[in-house]
Simulated assay, not measured.
Amino acid sequence: MRVAAIKRSFAENTDHAGLWEMRGALIYETQAAVFVDFGPCSHWLPKSKIRVERGKGEALTVWLPEWLAKEKGLL
């Protein structure tokens, strides 16, 4: 399944350079990972491989590398 509302950051001067931006809702969180609902699908994502920005409520913006997005079927 593909997730809507994704884009790749090309700004080299940011912490998100080369990562894919995806928005979802936080379902569950542990010390090592987050379980995120992206709409058509939900996935566990390791915190060590992603960057997370919390929005209002359960809203999250997640930046992750392309290889991980493909592995999870998000691209």
Rank of each mutant, 00 (worst) to 15 (best):
residue 2 R to M: 12
residue 2 R to I: 06
residue 2 R to E: 11
residue 2 R to D: 08
residue 3 V to P: 12
residue 3 V to H: 13
residue 3 V to R: 15
residue 4 A to F: 12
residue 4 A to V: 09
residue 4 A to Y: 10
residue 5 A to V: 07
residue 6 I to Y: 04
residue 6 I to D: 03
residue 6 I to S: 02
residue 6 I to L: 07
residue 6 I to R: 09
residue 7 K to Q: 14
residue 7 K to V: 04
residue 8 R to S: 05
residue 8 R to D: 03
residue 8 R to K: 13
residue 9 S to E: 11
residue 10 F to V: 03
residue 10 F to A: 09
residue 10 F to W: 10
residue 12 E to H: 15
residue 12 E to S: 14
residue 13 N to H: 10
residue 13 N to E: 13
residue 13 N to P: 08
residue 13 N to D: 11
residue 14 T to D: 09
residue 14 T to M: 06
residue 14 T to N: 09
residue 14 T to H: 03
residue 16 H to W: 06
residue 16 H to D: 09
residue 16 H to A: 03
residue 16 H to K: 07
residue 19 L to C: 02
residue 20 W to D: 05
residue 20 W to F: 07
residue 20 W to R: 04
residue 21 E to D: 01
residue 21 E to C: 01
residue 22 M to F: 08
residue 23 R to C: 11
residue 23 R to E: 13
residue 23 R to Y: 07
residue 23 R to M: 11
residue 24 G to C: 03
residue 25 A to W: 04
residue 25 A to V: 01
residue 26 L to T: 00
residue 27 I to K: 15
residue 27 I to P: 01
residue 27 I to R: 15
residue 28 Y to M: 07
residue 28 Y to Q: 14
residue 29 E to S: 00
residue 30 T to I: 07
residue 31 Q to P: 09
residue 31 Q to I: 09
residue 31 Q to E: 12
residue 31 Q to R: 12
residue 32 A to W: 12
residue 32 A to C: 03
residue 32 A to Q: 13
residue 33 A to W: 08
residue 34 V to P: 04
residue 34 V to F: 09
residue 34 V to A: 06
residue 34 V to G: 05
residue 34 V to W: 09
residue 35 F to I: 07
residue 35 F to A: 13
residue 35 F to Q: 15
residue 35 F to R: 15
residue 36 V to Y: 06
residue 36 V to S: 06
residue 37 D to L: 07
residue 37 D to R: 08
residue 37 D to T: 04
residue 38 F to C: 00
residue 38 F to D: 05
residue 39 G to F: 02
residue 40 P to A: 02
residue 40 P to T: 09
residue 41 C to G: 02
residue 41 C to P: 01
residue 42 S to A: 07
residue 42 S to G: 04
residue 43 H to Y: 03
residue 44 W to N: 13
residue 44 W to I: 08
residue 44 W to P: 04
residue 45 L to S: 01
residue 45 L to W: 02
residue 46 P to L: 08
residue 46 P to H: 02
residue 46 P to V: 00
residue 48 S to R: 07
residue 49 K to M: 08
residue 49 K to R: 10
residue 49 K to H: 03
residue 50 I to M: 01
residue 51 R to T: 01
residue 51 R to A: 05
residue 52 V to L: 06
residue 52 V to D: 00
residue 53 E to G: 02
residue 53 E to A: 15
residue 53 E to S: 15
residue 53 E to F: 10
residue 53 E to D: 15
residue 54 R to M: 01
residue 55 G to P: 06
residue 56 K to T: 05
residue 56 K to D: 10
residue 56 K to P: 01
residue 57 G to T: 02
residue 57 G to A: 06
residue 57 G to I: 06
residue 58 E to K: 04
residue 58 E to R: 10
residue 59 A to G: 04
residue 59 A to D: 10
residue 60 L to Q: 05
residue 60 L to K: 07
residue 61 T to F: 08
residue 61 T to P: 01
residue 61 T to L: 12
residue 61 T to C: 11
residue 62 V to Q: 01
residue 64 L to P: 11
residue 65 P to Q: 02
residue 66 E to Y: 14
residue 66 E to N: 10
residue 67 W to L: 03
residue 67 W to Y: 12
residue 68 L to I: 10
residue 68 L to K: 03
residue 68 L to R: 10
residue 68 L to E: 08
residue 69 A to H: 13
residue 70 K to N: 09
residue 70 K to E: 14
residue 70 K to T: 06
residue 71 E to C: 06
residue 71 E to Y: 11
residue 71 E to K: 13
residue 72 K to N: 11
residue 74 L to F: 12
residue 74 L to S: 14
residue 74 L to R: 14
residue 75 L to I: 07
residue 75 L to F: 10
residue 75 L to P: 05
residue 75 L to V: 04
residue 75 L to Y: 06
